[in-house]
Each structure stands twice: as structure tokens, then as C-alpha cells.
């Protein structure tokens, strides 16, 4: 019973870690560069969850001060993640721009084929 309760208390962290591991797996196992970048952004969103989840207080409300409420969720992780999302898309675009240039230079976006072409020269 204790174990079940513990699992339910940490269920959100279990899913977060699953997303993290799935992102990591895509980045390592897949050779396609666009897919690698999507895996990277899945990893990134799991980090967003990891930051936001501890900030939530059960029964709390969004951190906008109003006389009607007294309990607010923690605003500090929100600030950090808010900027992280926008920076994340900017860096994703940078990575994709690199992929476009690689495709123009090598004619492929698969890691293996690029290694083969490098081996030929």
C-alpha cells in the first residue's frame, strides 16, 4: 500500500522521466537529423515539466495577485521556463538551418550516409 501511494505521489515524475528517456533514446538511436532534433526538443519539454511540477501547490491558483485568493503556485519556475521555451525554438531553428546546409553539401540528412561520404574523400 505504501509503495502504491508512493508511486501515485510521484506519478508525474515517472512520466517526466519517461519523456526524458524517450528523447534521449531518439537522439542516440536515430540517424535522421530532423528526428534527432525533435528528440532533443522532447527532452527539452520534459525538463520544462521537471521544473514546473514541483512549483504546483494543490489548491493553489495561477500566480496573479488578487484579493480573492491566498494560495499561489510558485512563479519562479514559470519565469525560467517561459524564457527557456522561446530560446528553445530559436536554437531549434539554428539546428534546422545547419541541417539544411548539410543537406545542400551532402545531399542527405542521414548520419550514416554522411559518414560514408566522408570516408570516400
Amino acid at each position: 500500500m505504501q509503495a502504491v501511494q508512493g508511486f501515485l505521489d510521484h506519478y508525474n515524475y515517472v512520466v517526466t522521466i519517461f519523456l526524458m528517456v524517450a528523447g534521449l533514446y531518439i537522439v542516440i538511436a536515430r540517424g535522421n537529423m530532423v528526428k534527432k532534433l525533435i528528440g532533443l526538443s522532447i527532452f527539452q519539454t520534459s525538463v520544462y515539466l521537471l521544473y514546473i511540477e514541483p512549483g504546483k501547490i494543490l489548491g493553489g491558483t495561477a500566480p496573479i495577485i488578487d484579493p480573492a485568493f491566498t494560495v499561489y503556485s510558485n512563479p519562479l519556475p514559470h519565469v525560467l521556463i517561459l524564457t527557456a521555451i522561446v530560446v528553445g525554438v530559436a536554437t531549434l531553428a539554428l539546428g534546422l538551418a545547419l541541417v539544411v546546409r548539410i543537406h545542400e553539401a551532402y545531399g542527405t540528412i542521414e548520419e550514416d550516409e554522411i559518414f560514408e561520404k566522408d570516408g570516400d574523400t
Binding site: 519539454t45 495561477a62 496573479i64 519556475p77 521555451i85 522561446v86
Partner: peptide, 14 residues
């Protein structure tokens, strides 16, 4: 999770 600002950003950006 009460993170309304972040949710708005994620919906428009992501």
C-alpha cells in the same frame, strides 16, 4: 499546473 504564462508560450511557440 497553474503555469498560464508558460502554457500560452508553449502553445504559440511549440
Amino acid at each position: 499546473l497553474d503555469a498560464v504564462d508558460v502554457a500560452m508560450t508553449e502553445a504559440s511557440v511549440g
